[in-house]
């Protein structure tokens, strides 16, 4: 819970430093989803660690950690002072982005144009990382287990207990989904974009899972569909790059997509953000589902 408060407060920091997009992401991820995942982990592994029988200090590891820490601290000595105006980051590319991005890309939100156009490689990398994380969680938690014995979570918590909550969440879920779409396609003009929209979408599904149980959620959100689409998002992103390669330009050069360079940038950014949104939403849903199923498994084992 304190973690979530930290998310909220740091988002207001970002807010006051004018980094609206960062605040948006922190709002969606830091305050909402990550505390939930932490608690889900706690719920499935138990709160306390068993004391090791022979406490032996891992000397090599400790030494390694100390050396790495010292090296990192030495590394920071070379970095310019925090907020210095003559830092390389402010001299090299930032003025160019600020000056020319309105003409070159033609969208008002500069963060989106840097994220999805100038730095499209990096963003592709991020999407792949998210996808890999999803695969990792899946393979750790439920790769072996075919879904044989999934009972309702309502089995554990009687479903009639939360009538008011269920009705309110029923009312809330459709507007949340619509708002997610708005965030997805509004990224060109204001804060928003694929990452945030994906998380908001996933949050709606999580709300559903929490109150209607995993079984019903499985009927609403087809698992195979989610799995396939988490890959399709990455593919969509990559295929834009391949299309521009095949047309004789650099990887992820959007100018091949249309005659007018600004229109081409618009199309490219739209498609890429869509890919990001799909992947993020699907991976979040997948991770949450595997956590919940894992908790149910643990509880069932406890009952036996």
């Amino acid at each position: 819970m304190l973690f979530s408060i930290y998310g909220l407060i740091s988002a207001s920091f970002f807010m006051s430093m004018d980094a609206v997009d960062v605040a948006f992401t922190e709002a969606a991820v830091g305050a909402g989803v990550s505390p939930l995942l932490m608690l889900a982990t706690l719920a499935s592994v138990g709160r306390y660690q068993k004391k090791p029988t022979d406490p032996e200090i891992p000397k090599v590891a400790l030494l390694l950690v100390i050396i790495t820490g010292i090296l990192l601290i030495i590394g920071t000595l070379d970095m310019p002072a925090f907020g210095a105006a003559d830092a390389p980051a402010h001299q090299h590319v930032a003025p160019r982005y600020i000056k020319e991005s309105p003409e070159e890309i033609g969208i008002p939100n500069m963060v989106t144009s840097v994220l999805a156009s100038y730095r499209a490689y990096d963003t592709l990398g991020e999407v792949v990382v998210i996808f890999t994380a999803g695969i990792g969680v899946l393979s750790l938690l439920n790769f072996r287990r075919r879904r044989r014995n999934i009972h309702l979570i309502d089995d554990i918590i009687a479903i009639d207990e939360h009538k008011i909550l269920r009705i309110v969440s029923k009312i809330l879920i459709p507007p949340i989904l619509i708002f997610g779409l708005y965030v997805q396609f509004h990224g060109d003009f204001g804060p928003g974009g694929g990452f945030q929209a994906g998380v908001i979408f996933a949050a709606a599904i999580i709300l559903y899972v929490l109150f209607f149980g995993v079984k019903y959620a499985h009927q609403v959100v087809n698992q195979t569909f989610v799995r396939v689409f988490s890959a399709i998002g990455v593919l969509l992103y990559g295929s834009v790059g391949v299309v521009s390669l095949l047309n004789g330009k650099n990887f992820l050069d959007y100018h091949v997509l249309a005659e007018n360079p600004t229109t081409a940038q618009h199309i490219g950014i739209l498609v890429i953000e869509l890919g990001v949104g799909i992947t993020v939403a699907c991976v979040m849903i997948l991770i949450f589902f595997s956590f919940i199923e894992n908790i149910e498994k643990v509880i069932q084992e406890l009952r036996k």
Binding site: L8, L36, A43, L165, A203
Partner: peptide
């Protein structure tokens, strides 16, 4: 345009409070 962020917050805050409650409940029961 900050208001978008505020809207997201209002949503996410609700979801996270409810979710945390639910997990507390589940762990307690088990």
């Amino acid at each position: 345009d900050f208001l978008d962020v505020a809207l997201t917050y209002a949503l996410i805050n609700f979801i996270s409070v409810i979710g945390v409650l639910r997990f507390v409940e589940i762990t307690r029961r088990s």
